[in-house]
Structure formats: C-alpha cells, structure tokens
Design a protein around this nucleic acid. Structure first.
Lengths: 221, 221
DNA sequence: ACTGCTTCCGTACTAAGTACGATGCCTGAT
DNA sequence: ATCAGGCATCGTACTTAGTACGGAAGCAGT
C-alpha cells in the first residue's frame, strides 16, 4: 500500500485525505481543487480516495469541520469579553490561512462535530457570563457576522498581502477612468490606501473592539 | 433570431444573459448554474451565449456587478449615519435575494463599473461628512464586514426562511447526541431558537445600529 | 438577387466526478 | 510454507460541464 513519492507515509485515511485537501486548497483554491489533483498531491489515485470519503461534498464538509477545529475556543478562565476576543482573533487568523473557508460555509448546511463543539464552547462562554439568552443570540450572530465578513473581504483583496500587485491593480485602475468617474474612490485610494503603512487588516481589531463594546452595552440594558 | 419559448423576447444580449443568470442562480444556486442550463432558461443554446459574454467567469463577474447595481446607494440628502444605515438595509435585502452573491465575491477580484460606482457613493457619503480618512477607511471596512458576514450566515441557514425544515434539522440534531455532547447548543436551541417568534434576521438591525454607534464614537475621537 | 455582417448553433474535444469491477498485498489458519 | 479472505488500491469508462471551431440563417445595402 502507500505510494511511490509525494505523500510521505503509508496508508491513506479520512483524516489524511481531508488535511491534504485543506493544504491543496490553501495553495490553489477550492475552485480548482479536484479529486484528481488531490489524489496526485497525496501520491494516490482518484478512485482510491473514495474508500475514505463518500464523495466530494463529504470532503468539503470535512474540510470546513477541520477549519473549525483549528480555531481556539474561548478560554474558560477569563471574563467573557476577553475570552470572546481571543477566540475572534484566533478565528481571523485561521480564516486568513484558509481564505476559501467562509465562502464554502455558505453551501454546507450539515455541521460536523468540531463545528458543533466550537459553537457550543462560544455559547458556553456567553451563557456562563450570565447574559440573557436574547443577548447571547444577538452577540453571537453579530460578532460572527463581523468576523466572517472581515474574512471574506480580506480574501477578496488582490494579492496575498505582499501588496505589489495590489498597488499595480489599483494604480492602473486609478490612472484610467477612475479619477473622473469615481472621485471618492480615487481620492480614498491616493490619499489613504496608497500611503505607506496602510494595512486593511488593521481595521479588524478596531472593528472587533467596537463590536464588543456594543455587545457589552447590550448586556447592560 | 430569438427562440421558440421560455425566454420572452427576441435577440439575446449581454444584459439579458446576465439577468437570466441571476434569476437562475436565485432558483438553483451558483454551484449548479451551468452554461447549458442557463441557455435552456433563456430559450437558447450553450454556444450562443458566447457571442455575448467571454466565458463563464465573465458571466460571474457580470452577475456580481449587477448585484451591486441593485443596492441603493446612500441618499445624499441625509446625515451620514442615516444614509449609511439605509444603504446597509438595502444591501442586506439584496444579498438575501441573492444568497450566492457574497461567497462569489471572494473569487472575483476585478470589480465592474456598478461595483466601483457603489463604492464611490458610499465613500462619498462618509467623506462629505467630514470624517478623517482613517475613520472613513475603518468605517467602511467594518460596516461592510458586518453586512457581508451577516449575509453569509443567513445564506447558510437551512431553509429559505419558512422554518419548517429548519426546526426539523435542529430538532433531530438536538434529539440525538447533542444534549449531552453540546449542552450549551442544546439549551440555546431549546430555550431560544425554538421559541415562537425567534428570527435570526432580527439581529441584523441590532448589530447594524451597534456598529454605527461604534463608528460614530470613532468619529468623535 | 448578391455580398457581407451579425447572430446563432451543431459538433466535438477536454476536464472533472464517480460507478463498477478487478488487482494485489496482508493476515491468520492450516 | 501455503492458501483463503478481506481490504486498500486503482484501471476503465460513463456522465456532465466548459468551450473552440466552423458552418448556417436572417438581414442590410448595393
């Protein structure tokens, strides 16, 4: 069993298929992730994977579940705000590693065990703080909306973060028709985005704290 | 020219292809949206579409751009907070009509004219309010993160909103192993989600106002 | 009616998911 | 040591999807 090269070890199993799929998706994206390419990356053959997973959807579901497994749950020995903040920062890091994850979530409606466990932990964090259920519900929905939404925006940014081609794209765009047709966009780009030191990601913690402030205020009422 | 049935009118053009694609995607989702099915829906043939669009990616890009065109820009005769709120509510409605839109955005990096125009209008709303550029940047990033993220979550909810199958899914899940393994999730579901009158969507305006509060506070500093 | 353009579409090639059945290695019993 | 059974692996092939290519069909202007 096993294979000749590429994949390091012996027998394939579900776990190995899924982690391989995640690594491949990180490299080439989910759109271009195919069973054949995945099999190649694992040093295996397409049909072999089907002994360990039901079908491609099963792989996709499993990938999402493993992504949730990567997110640190909120620590239980901290006040809820601190704990929730930590898990959000962790979530953001994970989603940055796997930019395909949030969009994929839209189509997967059956949550896996790690996903459920993670949600359970977050709800536990909020519930044990004594917040009323209605506030817990709002808090979770709002905080995750922000985290997921920020992740989507970061994912759709050109470039991996280097900024070179990003500047090029924006530069070209600006030079063309943008200045006349889209004056605000042009000014914003020139006066802010193109300035040294600008980093879209800086808005994350600003927004997160702002959201947590709001939740806290909600809890007070 | 034209065709025998289905599609209403005569000659095909880019616009008709794109709106047809959007309608089809609303019905069957983007995943299952194929050139062949789209051609069928338009009463045409696969290859015919290629005289009006470059390829499938071009269709996808065009769909996203039309979605942005559907979102009402912030009214210019209102204070920024009111104006921004209105455009966010509009955006949320549009993204609810087109649940596939946000996930699709992740993979499209070339914005179309309507997209640029919309962004320009929102930036104009914030800039004309006299907010400093840094605040404008944070505000836009944070507000849109929330709007997009909320849309993704709503899209991944089971059921279209009827709630029947939603309850079934959750009910089954709860009944199984959930109560022991995921006590917080179980309690949350039983005590809150399953209660009559619960609507996930209610968190949107709560969150939106909370975010806008935060932005306002940011602007004050 | 003829030329040429625009629009359309029939055919066919390639990539991708995956059903089916065969092959070959490993284990435990003789 | 040999052999039967089982399981992981894979070769083949069918189906669906994107799309290149070249031809046909309707219309304008001469």
């Amino acid at each position: 069993m096993g294979q000749q090269e590429a994949g390091r070890t012996v027998t394939l199993n579900r776990e190995r298929v899924l982690t391989g799929a995640i690594e491949l998706a990180d490299e080439i994206g989910v759109e271009t992730l195919t069973i054949r390419r995945l099999a190649d990356a694992l040093g295996s053959k397409p049909m072999t994977l089907y002994s360990h997973v039901a079908n491609k959807d099963d792989i996709l579901d499993g990938m999402i579940d493993l992504v949730f497994a990567e997110i640190d749950p909120p620590p239980t020995d901290q006040p809820w705000r601190v704990a929730l903040r930590q898990r959000c920062v962790s979530a953001r890091q994970v989603l940055r590693r796997h930019p395909w994850a949030v969009p994929l979530m839209e189509s997967r409606t059956v949550p896996g065990p790690h996903t459920l466990g993670h949600h359970d932990a977050v709800l536990g964090c909020l519930r044990s703080a004594g917040l009323p259920m209605a506030v817990v519900a709002h808090a979770y929905a709002i905080v995750d909306a922000f985290v997921y939404g920020f992740a989507v925006q970061e994912a759709s940014l050109p470039g991996g973060g280097a900024g070179d081609e990003f500047d090029d794209v924006i530069g070209d765009m600006t030079a063309q028709l943008a200045v006349d047709a889209f004056p605000n966009l042009a000014a914003f780009t020139a006066e802010h985005v193109m300035q040294p030191g600008y980093d879209f990601g800086d808005s994350f913690e600003v927004g997160l704290d702002l959201v947590l402030d709001g939740i806290e205020r909600l809890a007070g009422a």
